[in-house]
Every structure is written in structure tokens, then in C-alpha cells.
């Protein structure tokens, strides 16, 4: 079974809060010193899901597409090290400043360019902006059935059986192929690459594709084609006051707490 996984490189979500800075004027997140950007964790799980589908079907390929700056190549390499076959990097200055729509547009063109596979997989959302829309937009653009926020994916006769995470439980669905899936963190940890694969991935060529290669005009993508406008970007400050309720016994402390909550009009 052939699978394509779309991955995004993001600032490491483990970056300590103290090291997280934004440039409010330029409306950009400043990279933290000494902390490399990483593949979005949900996307790594998407790669894991793709590799398991390939293993279960016993044949096919897992190819990776990522749209982003030069460094995005590392997210592709990481996926290759996990065991993916080929990597495609959508790299063009024209893509800069895009939004979910322009990203989805470029990705869908790239997927058509490579040939629509049996399964297309995304992470449920990129762990930086957390919009969670690119997968669904691609499904619309390619007119494919989709299932989002999945915790399990299995092959079934002639299709795919998935389990969605919903507010009050799980929803099990059968889909035909080709289809679009987005993977949630409940799916489980992605594999840690073997050193040999890391070294092989380091030697592997990643194919670069520009907007022109995909038949896209610069006015359709990047900031020119974006449909979402950002008005401001800032780090919210929150003042927290801590009051320790004193008391000799647990009962006294509880009574003190209740009084304090009443005074604050919370109770």
C-alpha cells in the first residue's frame, strides 16, 4: 500500500518557557538559542502510522512531503531515518508567509504531481500553531474521504478501519482508499530511528520542488495567496498571586479556604 505523509518542522515544543521569545514588531517567533527545530510530534506519529500500514500490507512505499525553509529538510530526514522511502521538500521563497490554505494548496499539487497514493496521512495538527486544518483542506481539494484525530488505523478488506477520538469516547469508521487520515497523540509513540537508518537517511537525496514545478503561480501561494491575516503576536503575561491559607488543623485550613473563595466571589 502506498502512503504519503505530510510533515511540518516546528520549534521544539519542549523549549522551556523562559527561552520562548517573540518579535512583536515582525510578528514572528524567535528561534531559541541552542534548541533545534523538530518534526511536529503528531507528524512523527503520522509517519509511524504510515510505516505500520506499509508493514501490514507487506508492500508499497512511504513517501514524505514537507513545505518549509531549508531546515525543514531535517524533518524529512528524520522521517526517512524512521524508515520512509523518499522525501520531497517544497521549498520556494514564494511559499513564505503562507497560511493553512496556501500550504494545503501546495501540498495537494505536490501529491497530484507524485500521484495520489492509497492513503494520505497528516498529524492531527502542527504543534506550533495548533490549527489542525491542513489535512482536511487537502482532502477537500483532492476530493477524498477523510477521518481526523485517529488513535488507531488498521487495514481491512479493500479499505481502512480507523478509530477516532471524540469527546465522549471513540468512533470506529471504515474508509475506502484512497483517503486522508490525521493521527492523534493517542496513537502511541513513534519509533526511535536506528543509527544505521540515520546514516542511510543522511546520504539519501531529498527532491526539492518549487511553486513552478507544481504549476502554481507565486500569487496563489505564500503571503500573496494567504486568506488569514495576522494582526498582532505577543506573549500574554499573567500575574499570579499565591495566598497560603494558614491553620492548625485540616478543618481550619478548609474553613479558611472556603472563606477566601467566598470573598473572591468564586463560591
Amino acid at each position: 500500500m502506498d502512503v504519503i505523509v505530510c510533515v511540518k518542522q516546528i520549534p521544539d515544543p519542549e523549549t522551556p518557557a523562559a527561552a520562548f521569545k517573540v518579535d512583536e514588531q515582525a510578528m514572528q517567533v524567535l528561534p531559541a538559542q541552542g534548541i533545534s527545530p523538530v518534526i511536529s510530534p503528531f507528524d512523527a506519529q503520522a509517519v509511524e502510522a504510515a510505516l505500520r500500514i506499509k508493514d501490514a500490507s507487506g508492500e508499497g512505499s512511504v513517501n514524505i512531503i514537507s513545505l518549509g525553509p531549508d531546515s525543514a529538510r531535517d524533518a524529512i530526514k528524520h522521517s526517512l531515518a524512521m524508515g520512509a522511502d523518499e522525501g520531497y521538500h517544497l521549498k520556494d521563497d514564494a511559499f513564505d508567509g503562507g497560511d493553512a490554505w496556501t500550504t494545503a494548496l501546495a501540498l495537494s499539487k505536490a501529491i497530484q504531481h507524485l500521484g495520489v497514493p492509497d492513503v494520505l496521512i497528516f498529524g492531527r495538527q502542527a504543534a506550533d500553531w495548533d490549527q489542525g486544518t491542513v489535512g482536511s483542506i487537502v482532502a477537500e481539494l483532492l476530493d477524498l474521504p477523510s477521518a481526523t484525530v485517529l488513535r488507531a488505523v488498521e487495514l481491512s478488506d479493500g479499505g481502512i478501519t480507523v478509530s477516532r477520538v471524540v469527546a465522549d469516547g471513540f468512533e470506529n469508521i471504515d474508509l475506502p482508499t484512497p483517503c486522508v487520515l490525521t493521527i492523534s497523540n493517542e496513537f502511541g509513540d513513534p519509533r526511535y530511528p536506528q543509527l544505521r537508518q540515520i546514516m542511510q537517511a543522511a546520504r539519501k537525496q531529498v527532491t526539492e520542488l518549487t511553486a513552478a514545478d507544481l504549476g502554481l503561480d507565486a500569487s496563489e501561494v505564500g503571503s500573496a495567496g494567504a486568506r488569514v491575516q495576522m494582526h498582532s503576536l505577543f506573549q500574554p503575561t499573567s500575574d499570579v498571586e499565591v495566598e497560603i491559607i494558614e491553620g492548625d488543623t485540616p478543618e481550619e485550613k478548609a474553613a479558611g479556604l472556603v472563606n477566601a473563595l467566598r470573598e473572591a466571589k468564586i463560591l
Binding site: 519542549e14 534548541i35 533545534s36 509513540d189 519509533r191 526511535y192 530511528p193 543509527l195 544505521r196
Partner: peptide, 26 residues
């Protein structure tokens, strides 16, 4: 670790933090 990439989750997390952030304190 290197040949089989088989290790406890906590070890994997530590190694990933070392790779990405240059320290082991996830």
C-alpha cells in the same frame, strides 16, 4: 540503542532531548 533502537520510553525521551536541546533534562 544504536542497532535496534529498542529502549525504555524514558531513555528515548532523554536521548531526544539531548539531540535537540543539548541537555538531558526534558
Amino acid at each position: 540503542v544504536m542497532e535496534e533502537a529498542r529502549m525504555p520510553d524514558t531513555v528515548q525521551g532523554t536521548l531526544e532531548t539531548l539531540e535537540r536541546q543539548g541537555h538531558p533534562w526534558r
